[in-house]
Simulated scan of single mutants.
Amino acid sequence: MEQERQHKITNLLETYFSDASLLWDKVMLSKILADPKGMVPIEALCKLPRLKAIQATPEEIKYCAEQHSQSKLQIDQEKIGRIKPYVVNKTEELDDWSIYVEGLEKPYNNEQAITQLFSSLVGHVSFFRIPPNQQGQANFLSYCFIEFDLQQNVEKAVQLFKQTVTPDHPPAKELKLRVMSKLEWNRYKDEYLHVLEERKAALKKLWEDYHQQYPEGQGDEAYHQEAQEEKGYEEGLVVFVDGLHPQCARTTATALLQTSGVEIAFMNTKKKGLQTVHVRLKNREDAQKLCAYFDQHPIMQETGQDTVGKEQASKTRDCLRLRILEGKKENDGLF
């Protein structure tokens, strides 16, 4: 079989099985979905219009898939299918074929520019996703997930940004990106969640031990009085605030918190991109009143400029969460 004909048959096969083609080719898609493994009989492939037009034989199709498309197609007896699974109405990237990228800046701050960058440096990008924030909005904040057509391009991308690329492209190191496989990102995420669970369990035990020692709050007053004498300042004035919009500035955060009717005496520097902040109140009563207000009024800050917030029907993780700091956290402090 001549080389030009082999190339043509291989190209047609890969096109029929490609993501782009399956978006509109309902006939081919139905053949893939009809098989649990997504395999299509070679005899059925011969009858597809473009392969039928050049009279491609089963032997030719099988040979081209085996010899020229080993990275994209696989053969199971007399059937051919994709190596990469096809997901209908995909909403998330496939882990084994994807990378996590952070540190992206202008001009690489939109899907088209980022996709073109990685397609030119690594290989064809088949899927792009910006993870949603707490409000479920996909606002670009310098990081994203990228899925490739070929699985080997994941390692290629990771290695590429550890060294200088060829002179045909600007050095990858100049982009100052952090790139890792989605599988590695998943490991980091699992480790982080594990640490959080451990801390929650430790805090719960401390709380239980305290209540066993001082039933119904006995000893609280003596403890606070003794602690204040040792530290030289009044306790219970520092409040930790979580759940602010990532783009919220210090003045906006102050205005939003003061909707409670409590005046904020001091706030540590609030840089954009942080969702937490510490504030100091004039007295313990104000600190308790501030926390109580936002506990009774579940408020979600919708934008970085929102100074009022939107009250929710019930308290969720998207709402402002406040707590008064105690002990070492207050003493280590931030002021």
Rank of each mutant, 00 (worst) to 15 (best):
S181Q: 11
K310G: 04
L237T: 10
E4W: 00
E208Q: 15
K205L: 04
N153C: 06
P107W: 09
K315Y: 05
Q6D: 13
S69A: 13
R129E: 07
N133D: 12
T254A: 04
K200S: 07
T164Y: 10
L94P: 02
F118P: 08
Y223C: 03
Q247M: 05
D76F: 07
Y143R: 10
E60N: 08
N110I: 07
P132K: 13
H169F: 11
G243C: 05
I99G: 09
D306W: 00
S181L: 11
G219M: 15
A313V: 10
T307R: 10
E208F: 10
E174Q: 07
L196D: 08
K37N: 03
N153Y: 06
D35P: 01
D190S: 11
K231L: 15
L94E: 07
K282Y: 14
C291I: 03
S260G: 04
K231N: 14
K162W: 09
G219L: 15
Q116S: 03
V308W: 00
G309F: 02
A157R: 05
A249S: 04
S69H: 05
Q3H: 04
A222W: 08
P36D: 12
A287V: 06
K310H: 06
T164A: 14
Q228T: 08
E197C: 01
F240C: 12
L290G: 01
K162L: 12
E198R: 15
L177I: 11
Q225C: 13
V27D: 04
